[in-house]
């Protein structure tokens, strides 16, 4: 599909130039755009905010995001607000994201929640290719939108697929499909007494069983009405899953884990970029 055929298209290419992560190329088209980056004071890492100019995703919309973080470059990517999916009477909204992380690159991809409104159908496919030494922080949060009848699950379907490859080998395959239109959602074994579902996947060579244990302790200390589970991947990394009834409760758990990792890693090895 040609770039201009998407409802929104965004392409970002970040490189390390003399120790500083800078855009090599940024292109966006129609409904998607990024603002000028904010540089983190400590690490110098650029943080970009993705904006949806239409204010929400509508029937049949298609979006594509391409991200490349080159060798030793770093990037934080988030959204300016939640991704709102409105009713899709004829065709589901589709969004695909392709991410390439070169050797020793670093990406935090932490978008705001996806909110599915009444009769909304949304399909997302994220594919991430990582090279040796690359670090990835990835999250998604699925939440139901407000409904006139006050039902918890008024959207028809939210379907998120995430494939992560390390050196061309599939290491994460995550397939979340919540389909209240045809499925009983609030039963034992499925969403039970919760409405929101969050995922946090971290892959980095430095992650070991001991860190996962300490993250479990951090999770146990969090207050709020949620259920969380964390477990190691087949490569150095973990998946954290959180079920709750409020976005904040999920964000709190994810942030606490993210904070512990950042604190530990940067206390030991200050970011390379600080030298410059």
């Amino acid at each position: 599909m040609d770039r201009t055929q998407w409802t929104g298209f965004l392409s970002m290419d970040i490189e390390n130039r003399a120790g500083k992560s800078v855009p090599k190329n940024i292109y966006f088209h129609d409904a998607l755009k990024v603002q000028r980056p904010v540089y983190d004071g400590k690490s110098g890492r650029p943080c970009y905010y993705i904006l949806n100019l239409g204010g929400g995703y509508l029937d049949g919309d298609t979006y594509r995001i391409e991200i490349k973080v080159r060798e030793k470059a770093e990037l934080t990517l988030t959204t300016l607000g939640a991704t709102l999916i409105y009713k899709t009477p004829t065709k589901p909204v589709y969004q695909e994201t392709e991410i390439f992380l070169e050797e020793n690159s670093y990406l935090e991809y932490l978008p705001d929640p996806i909110i599915g409104y009444e009769k909304a159908r949304y399909k997302q496919l994220d594919t991430i290719y990582m090279k040796k030494g690359a670090t990835l922080f990835y999250s998604d949060i699925l939440t139901p939108g407000w409904s006139a009848e006050g039902r918890s699950f008024s959207y028809d379907m939210l379907h998120l697929r995430t494939n992560i490859y390390m050196e061309d080998e599939l290491v994460v395959y995550d397939n979340i499909k919540l389909e209240p239109a045809v499925q009983q959602i609030d039963v034992l074994g499925f969403m039970e007494e919760y409405t929101h579902l969050g995922t946090f996947i971290v892959i980095a060579e430095k992650i070991d069983e001991d860190l996962v244990k300490r993250l479990q302790e951090v999770i146990n200390k969090q207050s709020g009405d949620f259920k969380a589970g964390i477990s190691s991947l087949t490569v150095a990394g973990f998946t954290l899953r959180v079920m709750a009834n409020m976005t904040q409760d999920i964000q709190k758990v994810i942030s606490a884990c993210h904070a512990l990792i950042s604190k530990e890693w940067y206390a030991k090895t200050p970011p390379l970029l600080r030298k410059y």
């Binding site: 397939n175 074994g189 477990s231 899953r241």
Partner: peptide, 20 residues
């Protein structure tokens, strides 16, 4: 094919929590 391995959040959560 896109339905392969769709998760049951509660069941999966219980499997992770069993580790503790």
């Amino acid at each position: 094919e896109s339905d392969f391995g769709t998760i049951a959040p509660g069941i999966e959560m219980a499997q992770m929590q069993h580790e503790n």
